[in-house]
Write a protein that binds this DNA or RNA. Structure first.
Lengths: 341, 341
DNA sequence: GGATGTGATGTTTACGTTAACATCGTGGTG
DNA sequence: CACCACGATGTTAACGTAAACATCACATCC
């Protein structure tokens, strides 16, 4: 067992080369699996590396190669399920392609203006950037995306400025609304996400479009902030309206809150009121009752984000514009045919 | 408006220096906010940077400075709330200290052995590593932490090998169990997390210790995997046991599942059965009924992780061993005094 | 007015790696 | 046997930045 007395910090190829009795270039070749190194030499070098605790300096490597093999993700928060699952999917797929992921959390602008150390995004050691938020919110946070760095955007309408990958929000909302109408409900109430969210806007728009094109009245919108708590507040308002028999919540968490409010008000789900969510959280089958909801394919999203970005990096021709990942409605127990009075 | 005709890729200090009519060193000084640059020169340099679309090459910078200003986080998944919230807290606090975060997802070993590109963790461009999992699981995944890189571990008992930061699992579980006993329940049933999880083990241990030290019987443990679905299955088993009046679930999601199972079995919560969770998810106040649970302070965890790691990086004296973040019990509506028969 | 200090800027060099080119020996070929 | 091809290894230079040192102009002091 080698005694790693010597600090790894500062062990360079030159040190390894000296100990192994070869040139630094040969060490480099071994380190990169280059074929033209004879087995005996290779062994010697590997032994020397082991003994000295050598590890390649990726800064030097990146400098030489002109790339970091790292992608950056800019977002406000990981706290929403959508974001954390998207990030996970991106990280997994990027790893498969040999890229690491750097997380760049941006303090919300309202939050006493402290932006941390990332006022100068250009200094980040990344080859490309994935932005998970509305682009104009970046501007609001006083951040400018570095020019000439490939960018992909999620949850935004920046299709003209950058390639966009997104869940097909509109189609998901349409399916949810349609489903409730098909069950015979005269109309569908909506608990929307925050105004700043592009996804929330698209879901809202598709909901009202669907109602309108079916000649149904469009009830007043309840605004939430994605949290179950805000859904609860919206639910209290809806429970007070006896004409409300069907609710489409813009995400599962708010649907959870809505259901609690309805339950407390003595409205049975789905007997009196049907509820549909959006996201298909892992927990939603365990809600009371199990929630009918729109399934988002986060893994596919992550895959497409990475692929789109890598295609730009490699200067391959990419279809520009917006790339929509399909959704599908998952039927569970929170929806039922309208009980006609 | 400058025409960014020239590709930013390849714009170096030398280019900026040439255009501004100064030396590269002066550009460097401007770039780093060094004080001894006269205002007029600084302006010239900044204008030249702007015109050329210059952005510092962080690889070269890292090479020169010998540090990346980046911390790596190794984990299996972001899908659990605990992980994603810990990561978010770490990222936020690290940013405040001027460090970026690199995410290193590790495919679970069982998952057809594909480890992606990270077999050689040593090549990562990070100054320190935070491991969010049991260390021995890393070994199982055939990964070796690079020697001489500062490491902090979360959710592990590696206290002898590395500094550990963790939630005070034992105390949280003790509070939960105590609370139920104090309400008069003869004993407390437990829905535990998966056997691989250190946190799950600690919660289980503290639960049974608490029961034993109070002279109570220790019921058979139900095993879950953190998911609401697994909690539901455990809940079905518990609902079948008329002697079960108090349940401590090892996390909120499983508590959610337990409550659904109890509800379906016609057991009222908290009338017939009291339920306590662990985590205090943002959603748990919206559960039916709002869940009494053990609050974890993820922000504090993230802060301590980063601080501990940075202290090692700066070679400051650090208290070694395990650093426990306190928990507190949040009382809501899912627990009530035992209704004596 | 010459010595001295000070602040602004320039020059040199090294960080660790790898592409490109150079060298050297070995074995095969006509 | 002279020549060439080829595989293994070595040498050189460059990637972009910043520390250390050098220089220069000018103000200050006796």
């Amino acid at each position: 067992m080698p005694t790693n007395r010597r600090a790894a910090r500062g062990v360079s190829m030159a040190d390894v080369a000296r100990l192994a009795g070869v040139s630094a270039q040969t060490v480099s070749r071994v380190s990169n699996g280059h074929p033209s190194v004879v087995e005996s030499t290779r062994r010697q070098v590997l032994d020397a590396m082991q003994e000295l605790g050598y590890r390649p300096n990726s800064a030097a490597r990146a400098l030489k190669r002109g790339e970091f093999r790292t992608l950056g993700i800019i977002l406000f928060t990981l706290a929403t399920t959508g974001n954390s699952r998207t990030v996970e999917a991106i990280a997994t797929h990027a790893a498969r392609e040999g890229y690491a992921i750097t997380l760049i959390p941006v303090a919300v602008p309202t939050q006493d203006g402290v932006l941390g150390a990332f006022t100068r995004l250009g200094e980040l050691a990344v080859d490309g950037i994935i932005v998970i938020m509305e682009v104009h919110l970046l501007d609001a946070a006083d951040l400018t995306l570095p020019p000439n760095v490939p960018v992909v955007v999620v949850d935004s309408d920046a299709g003209d400025r950058y390639p966009v990958v997104d869940t097909d929000q509109a189609d998901g909302a349409r399916q949810a609304t349609r489903h409730l109408l098909d069950l015979g409900h005269p109309t569908v109430h909506h608990v929307a996400g925050p105004v700043e969210s592009f996804a929330a806007g698209r879901r809202l728009q598709a909901w009202s479009d669907t109602l309108r094109s079916s000649g149904r009245p469009v009830p007043e919108v309840q605004r939430g902030d994605w949290s179950a708590e805000s859904g609860y507040r919206a639910g209290l308002a809806l429970a007070a309206d006896p004409g409300c028999t069907a609710v489409f919540a813009a995400n599962d968490q708010m649907a959870l809150g809505v259901m609690r409010a309805l339950h407390e008000a003595g409205r049975a789900i789905p007997g009196d009121v049907s509820v549909v969510g959006f996201d298909d959280l892992p927990d939603s089958p365990a809600y009371l009752p199990p929630l009918t909801t729109v399934h988002q394919d986060f893994a596919e999203m992550g895959r497409r984000c990475v692929d789109t970005l890598l295609r730009q990096l490699r200067r391959e021709p990419g279809r520009p514009g917006t790339d929509l990942v399909p959704t599908r409605l998952v039927l569970r127990d929170s929806t039922a045919p309208h009980a006609r009075a």
